[in-house]
């Protein structure tokens, strides 16, 4: 398992290749990547991500451990950035390796659902001179009930 919380950009290809290398018994690698999405109006200047150093790493580790206990996984990777990110920038990625794809897909979805509302990150949208905190969505909280 590898959990990374960093301000710096990461290279999706390098990370995915490194994660996939070295497994002879994993038939499935699933990766998900979150990207800063511009508004429909094209006005978003940046997304600022704040986090709680220490608790963030602990919460992500616990979520990944839960995934490992629920599915047959060979490995888990979580990378999440913080700081000021512009539209198009990669915010985060998860990757799962499993003998079979169902476990890899489900575990990746589980990681994403929990990471959205149980890991201490907060997003703030910057639009011109205005900045506003992104509200949590009920749908994100509801998504946890399926697990």
């Amino acid at each position: 398992m590898r959990i990374v919380v960093q301000e710096a950009p990461f290279d999706l290809g390098d990370e995915a290749n490194r994660f996939a290398a070295g497994h002879r018994d994993m038939g499935a690698i699933v990766t998900f990547t979150g990207v800063v999405r511009d508004l429909a109006t094209g006005d978003l200047d940046a997304m600022e991500i704040e986090h709680y150093p220490g608790m963030t790493e602990a919460a992500l580790t616990e979520i990944a451990q839960q995934a490992q206990s629920r599915w047959s996984l060979g490995d888990v990777l979580v990378i999440h950035r913080y700081g000021r990110l512009e539209p198009g920038a990669l915010i985060m990625m998860v990757a799962t390796a499993a003998p079979h794809r169902k476990d890899a897909f489900e575990a990746a979805e589980y990681l994403m659902d929990y990471l959205k509302s149980r890991a201490p990150f907060w997003k703030k949208e910057h639009i011109g001179a205005d900045a506003s905190w992104v509200s949590a969505k009920d749908a994100d909280e509801d998504a946890l009930s399926r697990w």
């Binding site: 979150g34 709680y52 999440h80 990471l115 509302s117 990150f121 509200s135």
Partner: peptide
């Protein structure tokens, strides 16, 4: 002890 709004990661 830490206080914060509902989290918005991902």
């Amino acid at each position: 002890v830490a206080f914060f709004p509902p989290m918005t990661g991902g």
